[in-house]
Nucleic acid binder design. Structure first.
Length: 382
DNA sequence: GCTCCACCGGAATAAAAGGGAA
DNA sequence: TTCCCTTTTATTCCGGTGGAGC
């Protein structure tokens, strides 16, 4: 028998290089983000003069190119600093991976060659080690550190604003924070706000035509010639434009549509594949989220699903009853469920609406499922 | 034994609007 | 009609517990 991988590998594909459609791939050119990148550069250029740049905040919805622009600027700065008489370091940290002040500082220390354990040290020890890096460095030059904190809202919500306090009070450190929500400032106390000197760059959602430009550029690099039907790129762009101009989603659609065409052994990607891609992405997203949810949260979701299927209006009290029934004695308090409901809402699986029903009936939360019940059933019971 | 931190839950406080008094 | 009261749950505050790494 022929090797199975060989057989699969030799099968035709619409792709030339699929990786280029991954949203994590950083292209040499970011269309329609020149203005924002220039803004970042205007602040960071100070570093080339041996001055610590101002702290910057970047806002924008998912898939508006925030991370890409920041990384792009980081690379450009590194390139520009090579022939200059300066000592600049840039570090990128995704706050979904490092969720507390301790972890972020420890990570920064490690990246800069200091051995810091994950646990066991006090916060103060780690912070001192971090600050120590700036005191003595072998180069005799000032070390300027630029830290990019991606998805900082997660960190602030989880652990408060201590991280910003520590970083902004350390000389020679400049922070670029990236946030999905404009309201993230409510997590920051005035003592930190004063040192964060409010330099904001807004990333607006991409329009349909801008998305087309982005997709066409990537498609040219990643698909083989004449494998894309004319309406595929505009269709992906239109769908993504509806979801708040999300370029990541647009790229996902295009890639998944191509994969579906490959699975079908079709020589060309048609609009119909984009429709299927839309369903598959939704399906995968929900399945992924649910698989990684802790047991108790899955039970809450199961309770919501049951009540939804019974077409009952879901209010918090009723939900807790249903949850208790499902967990059969091994249940946590209502206080915990309240947190779970919030988390599920953050994940976009449910939405809540608090209403007050007046005297004698008090307040309640009305919960609605935001995803397809079939997909949810699949994910929960598989 | 120490620290960090995830998880937990009790208690205090806030919120909204119908009910009822004026 | 206006305005305050009442009710019930949402939401916040905060401290306890125990596992893991050192």
């Amino acid at each position: 028998m022929e090797n199975i991988f060989k057989g699969l590998k030799n099968r035709g594909s619409v792709f030339k290089d699929k990786q280029l459609l991954d949203h994590r791939f950083l292209p040499h050119h970011l269309p329609h983000r020149e203005e924002q990148i220039t803004s970042i550069a205007k602040y960071w250029i100070e570093a080339l003069n041996n001055v610590t740049p101002s702290d910057i905040t970047i806002y924008g919805k998912t898939g508006t190119g925030k991370t890409a622009a920041a990384k792009f600027a980081m690379n450009q700065l590194k390139e520009a600093s090579i022939n200059e008489d300066v000592f600049i370091r840039t570090e990128y940290i995704r706050c979904t991976d490092y969720t507390t002040e301790y972890q972020v500082i420890a990570r920064l220390c490690q990246q800069m060659g200091r051995d810091v354990p994950y646990r066991g040290w006090t916060k103060a020890e780690v912070v001192n080690t971090f600050r120590d890096i700036f005191k003595k460095n072998a180069f005799g030059k000032n070390l300027i550190l630029i830290v990019v904190l991606d998805e900082i809202d997660i960190l602030l919500k989880n652990d408060g604003d201590g991280i910003l306090y520590t970083l902004t009070r350390t000389d020679n450190v400049s922070v670029l924070s990236i946030s999905n929500h404009v309201e993230f400032k409510k997590f920051i106390k005035p003592r930190v706000k004063s040192s964060l000197r409010d330099r904001e760059i807004v990333f607006p959602p991409y329009g349909a035509q801008q998305l087309i430009d982005i997709l066409e550029e990537r498609a040219r690099l990643s698909f083989n010639k004449n494998t894309l039907d004319d309406d595929v790129v505009p269709y992906c762009a239109a769908l993504a434009a509806k979801i708040e101009g999300d370029a990541r989603y647009a790229l996902d659609l295009l890639r998944t549509a191509g994969e579906l065409a490959d699975e079908d052994e079709s020589k060309k990607v048609f609009g119909a594949y984009v429709n299927d891609a839309k369903d598959r992405i939704e399906h995968n997203k929900i399945t992924d989220i649910i698989m990684t949810l802790p047991t108790q949260q899955q039970r809450v979701l199961e309770a919501i699903l049951k009540l939804t299927q019974r077409k009952e209006e879901i209010i918090s009290g009723k939900l807790y009853d249903a949850y208790e029934k499902i967990s059969k004695g091994d249940s946590v308090s209502y206080r915990r469920i309240f947190d779970f409901i919030n988390e599920l809402e953050m994940l976009g699986i449910i939405s809540t609406n608090t209403v007050s029903r007046g005297r004698g009936k008090g307040r309640t939360n009305i919960i609605t499922l935001q995803c397809d019940t079939d997909i949810l059933t699949d994910a929960l019971y598989s």
